[in-house]
Amino acid sequence: MTASSVSSPPEPPVVDDEFDEGDGGGWWSNSPGWAKGVLAAGVVLILLLAGGLAGAVIGQRTAPTYGPAAGSIDVGFLQDMSVHHRQAIQMAVWERSNTTDPALRQLAFDIESSQTQQLGMMQGWLQLWAQPTESAPGNYMGWMGMPVPSMPGMASEADLQRFRAATGSQLDVAFLQLMLRHHRGGLSMMQAAAAGASVPAVQALSSSMVASQTAEATTMTQLLAQRGAAPLPM
């Protein structure tokens, strides 16, 4: 349209057309009647579809499906870290209920309550974005480009049974060892999300996890040393 309107040499019109620029035989007058009809219908269709698309986009913002896509860093991190956090909470709940050491009970309650709060945030976001609230079993960390059957730091079923069977100082050492390895294992995921998440709240949460869990890991390393025990290998 622009091209035809700027090129308007002073040539006398042969066929008059009231819609034409009337000076140089524009595209409109050169088009056969059926093409004009098709074009008019096309313009109407474009308007309808543009309206429909705008409606769909607006609807997408308000209804169940908006937010980062499945497989994105944000969604993948929240799904994986939900599973990771749940196991930390599971161990912390047991330790808080069964330890006889006030320092360990305090640490366990701190981990349990903070990670339960964080888990609620992660689950809430995933629900708002209509994404599954946890990773598919045995398929983790795909969002970091390296899908694995189990995340680093996760305790095995045998680890958990040994932990729950322990009492007294053995229970405390088992807790510290498993939780320290759990914290260290989750660090790479938290760092990846802190660096690459697109949603600021996800970035902020993962950054705060890096800070708090690094500090807790230092504390747990000291508590293990005080009990004459060494950290587990990763």
Binding site: M1, A3, S4, S7, G24, G25, G26, W27, N30, S31, A35, V38, L39, G42, V43, I46
Partner: peptide
């Protein structure tokens, strides 16, 4: 211009 390709129509 009488034999122009109807670019707008094609584009539409």
């Amino acid at each position: 211009k009488n034999r122009q390709v109807p670019w707008l129509l094609i584009g539409a």
